[in-house]
Design a protein around this nucleic acid. Structure first.
Lengths: 255, 255
DNA sequence: CGTCATTTTGAAGAGCGTCAACTGTAGTGG
DNA sequence: CCACTACAGTTGACGCTCTTCAAAATGACG
C-alpha cells in the first residue's frame, strides 16, 4: 500500500484527476500515524484540528447509548476519510475507532478547505460524502428489514466489493479483522445470534468467517440470498439495472 | 410559509448569508409545484435534471426490498433538499415520496453547481448534507439498539425539534401526517406493534399521537425516556454537553 | 501453565411479527 | 339516504426470531 496516494486513488474512483491535482494531494499529505487496534481515533463531542484518512487497516464509526449498547454505523476501509465532517461541523456526532492496527494520515482542516476550492477535488469529496451516506441508508434498510442471515450475507458481500475496489481481496476471500461481538454491534444483533447465524450461512455453503478471514464460497448464490444490488456503492462502471421492485406493504401508489 | 426563501432560511441556520447571496437564492428559485400525497417525487434509479426543495408538507426517503418490505430512511420537512445527490451522482440510490400534500420548488442542476461556487452557500450545502447524514446515523442507532417505545419516543422528539426549527410547532404539539403503517416502515416495526407501543406511551403520559397530530405531553420526561441528546441535529446554539456515556458491551478501551 | 478474551453451546423466555377479525370513518355511486 | 368499497386503526391469539443468562470450550499470549 503506497501511503501517499491512497487518498488520490480513492478520489479518482469518482473521476480522473489532473496531474497537478494529484501532485497537490501528494504534497499535502504528511507521514502516517500508527493506530493501536481497539482504540478510539476520534471521540464523539470532540473537534479535532485535522482530518484523518485511513491508509491501511479497518476502522469503524460508532455511537453509544447510556446503557452501554453500541451501534457501529460504518466500517472504514483504506482510502476512507474519517472525519470530513469537521470541515463544516463544530464537533463529532459519533466516534471513530480502530478495529485492527491502522495507519492514518492527518490533513489540517485548512488544507481541506483548499482542496474544496479545486473543482475536481471538491467534487470528488462530495462524491465520497454522498456515497458514505448511501451506504448508511443501505445499512438502515438491512437492520430495519432484513433477517439476521440476510443482514450478515449482505454485509459480507458489501465488504467484498468495497475491499475489492481498493485491491484488498484475494480471489474470493478477504481479511475482516472483527470479532463476532463487533459484528453484532454492527448489525443490531447479539453476538450469540451472530455465532449461530454464521454457522447457518456456512452450512448453506454461502460463506465462511473464521479468525477474521471471510471466504465467499458461492458469490452468485450469496448475492441472490442477500438480495444484493451494488447500485448504492457507486463503483466505477457499476451502473445498476432499473429496479423492478415490487411493493406489498408500501402504500405509495405507482405515481 | 413564504415559498421563495424557505431554502435561504434553511441555509442560514448554518450561518448568516450576505444580502447578495440571499438575493441570488431568491432569483434562482422558480414557482413551486404541488405534489399529491402518497406519490413518488423521485424514484430509485432515476436521474432527475432538477433538485427539489421541499417548501411545505412532509415527505420521506425510502428503500424497497424485492419482497415488498419498505424502510423509510429519512423524513423531509420544509426547507430540506430532496436530491442534492444528483449534483454529483448519476442516479438515485433511493426514492423520495410525498407523505402529505407538498409544495416543492425545482432548481436546475446547473444552478446548484453555481451555488457551490459561492463559498457561503457552498459551505451551507455541505452543512445540510452532513447533518442529514448525522440524522441517518441516529436512526440507525435507534433501529439497531433501542426498544420499540424508545425508538418512537426518540423519533417524535426529533421531529418536534426539527419542526420547531422551521416554525411548524404549536406550543407542545405539531402535525405529523403519517399513518401507523408508515411509522412502522420508518422504525423497522410492524404497524400492529406501533399501535400497541403508541398506547403504552400515551398511557405513560409521555406523548399522544392521533389523526396525524402529535402532542408532547411531558417534554422533559420524554427526552429522558428516549435518551435524547440534540447534539446530532446541529441546531443553532444547541451545543451538546460532553457525553458522559458509559460502555458495557463495547470493547474499545478508553484510548 | 494460567489468564484473558472470544467462541460455542444449551436452555428459557421476551419482544415483536403474523394472521385474522372487527371497528370506525370517509368516499363513491345508486 | 343507503349500500358498497377501501383503508387506517384496533384487538386477540399464537408463535417465531432473537435475547439473555450461564457455562464450557477454544485459542492467544505472557
Amino acid at each position: 500500500m503506497e501511503c501517499d496516494n491512497m487518498l488520490a486513488r480513492k478520489l479518482q474512483r469518482f473521476s480522473e484527476l489532473a496531474r497537478e491535482d494529484i501532485d497537490y494531494l501528494d504534497d499535502v499529505i504528511g507521514p502516517p500515524a500508527v493506530l493501536t487496534p481497539r482504540r478510539d481515533i476520534i471521540r464523539e463531542g470532540e473537534a479535532p484540528e485535522d482530518v484523518f484518512v485511513l491508509i491501511s487497516g479497518l476502522a469503524c464509526r460508532y455511537k453509544l447509548l447510556r446503557n452501554g449498547r453500541r451501534q457501529l454505523v460504518a466500517l472504514l476501509v483504506p482510502g476512507d476519510l474519517c472525519n470530513l465532517h469537521m470541515m463544516v461541523l463544530d464537533r463529532m456526532d459519533h466516534s471513530v475507532g480502530a478495529l485492527s492496527q491502522c495507519l492514518a494520515v492527518r490533513i489540517p482542516k485548512r488544507i481541506i478547505q483548499e482542496m474544496l476550492q479545486r473543482p475536481a477535488i471538491g467534487r470528488a469529496l462530495w462524491w465520497a460524502a454522498l456515497t458514505d451516506e448511501a451506504i448508511l441508508r443501505e445499512w438502515l434498510l438491512s437492520v430495519g428489514q432484513r433477517s439476521a442471515s440476510e443482514r450478515l450475507a449482505h454485509l459480507f458481500y458489501e465488504m467484498y466489493l468495497r475491499l475489492q475496489a481498493v485491491g484488498l481481496t484475494d480471489d474470493n476471500s478477504y481479511r475482516l479483522p472483527v470479532t463476532q461481538i463487533e459484528l453484532g454491534d454492527a448489525m443490531g444483533l447479539s453476538s450469540v445470534h451472530i455465532n449461530r447465524t454464521l454457522q447457518k450461512l456456512r452450512g448453506q455453503g454461502l460463506l465462511a468467517f473464521d479468525g477474521g478471514k471471510v471466504v465467499i464460497l458461492d458469490p452468485k448464490s450469496l448475492m441472490t440470498y442477500a438480495g444484493f444490488r451494488d447500485d448504492y456503492l457507486f463503483l466505477r462502471g457499476g451502473h445498476g439495472r432499473s429496479s423492478g421492485a415490487v411493493r406489498k406493504r408500501s402504500r405509495v401508489p405507482p405515481g
